[in-house]
Design a protein around this nucleic acid. Structure first.
Lengths: 186, 186
DNA sequence: TGGGTCATGTAACCTGTTACATGATTAG
DNA sequence: CTAATCATGTAACAGGTTACATGACCCA
């Protein structure tokens, strides 16, 4: 999956591992994370598979850089992946896992738990929205407005997801608070 | 993470690897997946860490089974994990990754892509909702209504997530269809 | 007699995380 | 002079996926 993400970015233009790391943070990070170590490793795999080539470029006043370029075979692979129509809805949420087992802890502690989630979620949203149009930063990379459209769609997803998450947290919080009040008024 | 999920299930009562596999599918699968191979491997790790013990039980007409039981040290670990308050919102979505790069393909192909997603998503939802009260199946396992509450919360999350996903797909579909119509009426 | 359920895993591989390691330039 | 940015990675480990393997019972 990460392989294809990197391949997709290289398809917009040749990049170094460092460029990819930054671009990743500004675009794909809405729905995927990757450490630099992983990006450099995957770049080696792309090279080994013949999906990309690299070229060392000397720079004055900066360390040398290794620029990766997608090959024809890499483009073929990117399109093979895009048209392969298996739909994967499965997800993994560490937070939900914890919530599932919250019954082990006290009601008060769990109200506190959701309060903290609420705070953290609002922070997460404001960080995500702080740079309102990162797409514009890459307008030179993505010239085709039709390509930017799909980027915007994934950002839209991110927004909807965060809103949903926040209202779920609020709902849970309210539910626990009502239970607490019932105990006191009985 | 999976370790702690298994530990949480064992905390409801002693189980075999097979029991855990089934219970997993009926409960944690809303937000986590695991292969049997992984479950058996993690059980060995729990044992190695002293978080669970196992006992072989003979059965008539069925193969022997290995029943795992949580230890005191396992309960301590479960609670350590539950009260450890790092919040992890990061997610990974293979589907979003593909959507991001859809600009490579034609408009018509992408309308088809979202049509298929729409179908698949509706199917996924109906499968998820087909067994409306799996919790009842486990009422003997989870006697405490306060514990079932958190289970219900994660199910509620699943529902909200799926609804959100569906409306995102519909929104994207509509957007592409409008673009297509504009091209034809120009 | 053939498929489903019960019940256990191993081996190889791929992917992700954490920690470490280096070193130059530039802006405050 | 010190922190940030540019730029590259390696090593070890943890976690997840895929494929394979076995075997008995039960029901149609």
């Amino acid at each position: 999956m990460l392989k294809h993400g990197i391949l997709g970015l290289l398809n917009y233009g040749s990049m170094t591992g460092y460029d990819i790391t930054l671009t990743f943070k500004n675009s794909l990070s809405y729905f995927w994370t990757a450490q630099t170590s992983q990006i450099y490793r995957e770049l080696q795999t792309l090279k080994k598979n013949g999906w990309a080539t690299d070229e060392t470029v000397e720079q004055s006043g900066k360390p040398d850089k290794k620029v990766f370029t997608i090959t024809e075979s890499g483009r073929t692979e990117l399109n093979r992946w895009l048209t392969d129509d298996k739909t994967e809805f499965a997800m993994r949420s560490p937070l939900l896992m914890k919530t599932f087992f919250r019954g082990e802890r006290s009601l008060d502690e769990n109200i506190e738990y959701f309060n903290k989630l609420h705070e953290d979620c609002k922070n997460f949203i404001s960080v995500m929205q702080s740079s309102p149009s990162k797409i514009d930063l890459y307008s030179d990379v993505i010239k085709d407005p039709m390509k930017a459209l799909y980027w915007k769609m994934t950002m839209e997803y991110g927004l909807m997801y965060e809103q949903m998450y926040l209202s779920w947290i609020e709902k849970c919080k309210k539910e626990l608070e009502e239970i607490k009040n019932e105990y006191f008024t009985d």
